[in-house]
């Protein structure tokens, strides 16, 4: 099938098998390896990206499920909120092993896009789809809250 999709602001037209996963399309076909693999089942959230302004796990989305002319934002993208959160993750030591980090940053970006004034409870709800095994989430909260202050 032919896909027409805007990824990180760039229009991409490609021929792909219908059962190509979005994760593999990003990583293998486009070489956008910042989106990570974690579980194949949408459970861990490491492969989270923003599709049409919604946070999704790219390992359980097939290219055939994506409407034409969709937009995707990945960790490689340019976005004010995304770059701010990346900076705060560095400052607060919110990335440890890094395997969940890009998924977590995308989830936080999506959350603050929707509402920059979310409270602690809403941050917890917004990030609960991404598993982190290193940080105990504490430094991640610190980074997101500091980013909020600057929005």
């Amino acid at each position: 099938m032919n896909v027409k999709i805007t990824i990180n602001g760039k229009l991409i037209t490609r021929e792909v098998p219908e059962n190509r996963r979005l994760l593999d399309f990003l990583r293998e076909d486009l070489g956008l390896k910042g989106t990570k693999y974690g579980c194949d089942q949408g459970e861990c959230g490491a492969c989270s990206i923003i599709l049409n302004n919604k946070i999704v796990t790219s390992c359980i989305i097939l290219m055939a499920q994506i409407p034409q002319n969709s937009t995707v934002l990945t960790i490689e993208g340019t976005d004010h909120v995304l770059q701010l959160i990346q900076e705060k993750f560095k400052e607060f030591g919110a990335a440890q092993c890094g395997a969940c980090t890009t998924g977590m940053i995308m989830a936080a970006t999506s959350l603050l896009h929707l509402d920059p004034k979310v409270n602690q409870k809403e941050i917890e709800d917004g990030l609960c789809g991404v598993l982190c095994r290193c940080t105990g989430y504490t430094k991640i909260y610190d980074a997101v809250k500091e980013a909020q202050k600057q929005l």
């Binding site: 960790i75 560095k90 030591g93 980090t101």
Partner: peptide
């Protein structure tokens, strides 16, 4: 001191190379 992690720059961009990358 609370110095910034050395590996943070490439981890927040997803550029740090894991085996599957």
């Amino acid at each position: 001191k609370r110095l910034k992690r050395k590996d943070a720059d490439t981890k927040v961009t997803g550029e740090a190379p894991y085996a599957y990358d």
